[in-house]
């Protein structure tokens, strides 16, 4: 008999498109595909403006994840892959996007995407991805001037949060809110490693800590971890957070408290920053090719 176990780490896939825009009226259609370790996004831009996107979980096969992400973005638009002038692949699976015209690192794409989403005053970007964390400085054009990443350890990443969601049986999307349901802020869990932090959290539960208190301690540890990465490159205002964890209030507000800086809030989905940056790179590259008479 199979047990029907709820997966608390699982978040819903979704797509979006600008229904007020007709892509056929545009001149240049570009796409960015960000194949990350946990999620994949496809963004379609028309003349450098956001038109549609899709966010899916990355499967075991990067090319399939890229295809699935783009198919979802194209859904109900009447657009096909052939209508797209240039595609840029990014993320850890960037070289496995079969229909990409070029691959660009996610560091450069996140900086470009953040510049679009939060404005050209952004200088420091924190990308909290599925399995890595990056601190990036950029100039007013969104060009990277300094970066540092840590992808050796899952502490301070989305996957680490998913592990805890499953352990505590709390939907991953509710962790942030729940972590504030404490009378006073507990000390952070001492372990930075996800595996040890999980063991430590189990011990705290055994000691009678409520879930909200364990979550507060875990979010605080995660915030400390990424804040030290940011401090090592230096904080320059203005500050913006990209990636899935940017949606977790429990981590974001604790990072802001440690650093004494408020992150810029925007109407855009923080998780699409990399793919959006890739789509914007695609436009620039397409225009360069056109100017050379290659496209």
């Amino acid at each position: 008999m199979t047990e029907n176990k709820q997966e608390f780490w699982r978040w819903s896939e979704y797509n979006w498109r600008d229904e007020n825009k007709d892509w056929r009226e545009g001149n240049i259609v570009t796409a960015g595909i960000d194949v990350g370790s946990v999620s994949s996004q496809a963004v379609i831009c028309v003349d450098g403006e956001l038109y549609a996107f899709n966010n899916v979980r990355t499967g075991s096969n990067s090319p399939d994840s890229a295809r699935r992400a783009l198919e979802g973005a194209l859904k109900d638009t009447g657009m096909t892959r052939d209508d797209i002038n240039f595609v840029v692949g990014t993320g850890y699976g960037r070289v496995n996007v079969p229909f990409a015209d070029k691959a660009v690192t996610e560091i450069a794409c996140h900086a470009r995407g953040a510049n679009f989403m939060a404005g050209n005053e952004v200088r420091t970007i924190l990308d909290m991805g599925g399995q890595d964390c990056k601190a990036i400085h950029c100039d007013e054009k969104g060009k990277v001037t300094n970066f540092k990443m840590n992808d050796k350890c899952a502490a301070g990443t989305g996957r680490g949060m998913e592990v805890l969601a499953d352990l505590l049986e709390v939907p991953v999307t509710e962790i942030g809110e729940m972590s504030f349901q404490v009378d006073e802020e507990p000390p952070p869990v001492s372990s930075t490693c996800v595996v040890f932090a999980k063991s430590e959290s189990m011990a705290l539960l055994k000691d009678g800590w409520p879930k909200s208190k364990v979550l507060a301690a875990y979010c605080a540890a995660m915030a400390q971890r990424v804040a030290s990465l940011l401090e090592s490159v230096g904080m320059q205002e203005k500050f913006f957070i990209t990636g899935g964890i940017a949606k977790n209030r429990g981590v974001v507000e604790r990072i802001e408290k440690i650093l004494g800086v408020k992150a810029i809030q925007t109407k855009f989905d923080s998780q699409i920053a990399g793919a959006l940056g890739a789509a914007l790179f695609a436009k620039t590259l397409y225009e360069k090719r056109q100017a050379k008479g290659v496209a």
Partner: peptide, 16 residues
């Protein structure tokens, strides 16, 4: 650009 390649682990910071 200042490019920092490497990692932090339990034993320290190792960046070039």
């Amino acid at each position: 650009m200042k490019a920092n390649y490497g990692y932090t682990d339990g034993s320290g910071d190792y960046y070039i």
